[in-house]
C-alpha cells in the first residue's frame, strides 16, 4: 500500500516537473549563437556539408573520444560478466534459406556499412551508423552459420589499432595545427568531394571500425559463442 502511494507520488512529481516545460514552451525561430557559429564554421572553415558530423568529430571531438572509451568499457564489462561458456551456445541449426541468402547478403551489408562511414561528412550517417551496420552483417553471419568461429585476435587488433590511430591523429593535430583532434592536418580540398574536409572522414572511418568491432564482440559474447 505504502509502495503504491510512493509510486503515485513520484509519478505526480515527475508530471509537475515537466508541466512548466509544456505550458511555457515557445518554438524558437532562429539558431542561438553557438549553433550559428558551428554552422558557419562547418561550412567556411572545415568544408563539411554535414554539420552534425563536424560537431561530433571536431567541435565536440573530445566527447566522442570519451564515448568510444565508454563503449570499450561496456564491451570489456560484458565480456567479463559472461565469460564464454560453451553450454550457453545457441544450438538451433539455420534453415537453408537463411544460409543461402546470408552468403549473398553479408558482403552487400559490409559494403553498405563502409559506404555509410566513409561518406559521413557528405550524407546523413557516419561512424556510429556504419559501425552498427557492419556489426549487423557479422550478426547475420553468426546466425546463419552455427559453427562459425569468430577470430577474436583479428577483431581485437582492428579495435586497438583504430583506437590508437584515433588518438594518434588527435595528438598530430596538437603538434602540427591549433589543437587536439583538429582536422586541418590534411588539406581541405573541394567542398562536397569524397576526399575533402581534412581529416574528418579519416577520423570518422576509424570510429566506424572501432564501433563495429566493439559491437560485434558484444553480440558474439551475448550470443554465447566461445
Amino acid at each position: 500500500m505504502i509502495k503504491k502511494v510512493v509510486v503515485l507520488l513520484s509519478i505526480i512529481g515527475l508530471i509537475a516537473i515537466f508541466m512548466p516545460m509544456i505550458t511555457q514552451f515557445q518554438e524558437r525561430e532562429n539558431l542561438n549563437e553557438l549553433a550559428t557559429d558551428y554552422v558557419n564554421g562547418s561550412i567556411h572553415e572545415l568544408g563539411t556539408p554535414n554539420v552534425v558530423t563536424s560537431v561530433i568529430v571536431t567541435y565536440r571531438g573530445l566527447d566522442t573520444l570519451g564515448e568510444v572509451t565508454v563503449l570499450f568499457l561496456a564491451t570489456v564489462g560484458v565480456g567479463f560478466l559472461l565469460k564464454g561458456k560453451s553450454e550457453d551456445k545457441i544450438e538451433i541449426s539455420a534453415s537453408e534459406l537463411l544460409e543461402t541468402t546470408s552468403s549473398v547478403l553479408v558482403a552487400m551489408i559490409m559494403v553498405l556499412g563502409i559506404y555509410i562511414f566513409t561518406h559521413g561528412h557528405l550524407t546523413p550517417g557516419g561512424g556510429f551508423q556504419g559501425g552498427v551496420v557492419i556489426a549487423s552483417g557479422f550478426l547475420l553471419m553468426l546466425l546463419s552459420n552455427v559453427n562459425a568461429k569468430m577470430n577474436h585476435s583479428i577483431m581485437h587488433f582492428v579495435e586497438s589499432l583504430s583506437g590508437f590511430a584515433y588518438v594518434g591523429i588527435g595528438v598530430t593535430g596538437l603538434v602540427l595545427t591549433v589543437g587536439f583532434l583538429s582536422p586541418k592536418i590534411l588539406p581541405l580540398g573541394n567542398f562536397g568531394d569524397l576526399f575533402s574536409a581534412g581529416a574528418i572522414p579519416v577520423i570518422y572511418s576509424l570510429v566506424g571500425l572501432k564501433v563495429g568491432s566493439e559491437l560485434t564482440s558484444i553480440l558474439v559474447t551475448m550470443g554465447g559463442e566461445k
Binding site: V52, T53, G126, A135, S136, L139, L219, G223, G224
Partner: peptide, 22 residues
C-alpha cells in the same frame, strides 16, 4: 535530424532488440 533517425533505426530497434533476445 536524419542522422539521429538512422542511428535510432539501426541501434534502437535493431541491435537493442537482438541483445534483449539473446
Amino acid at each position: 535530424s536524419p542522422d539521429v533517425a538512422m542511428t535510432e533505426a539501426s541501434i534502437g530497434s535493431g541491435l537493442t532488440t537482438v541483445i534483449f533476445l539473446f
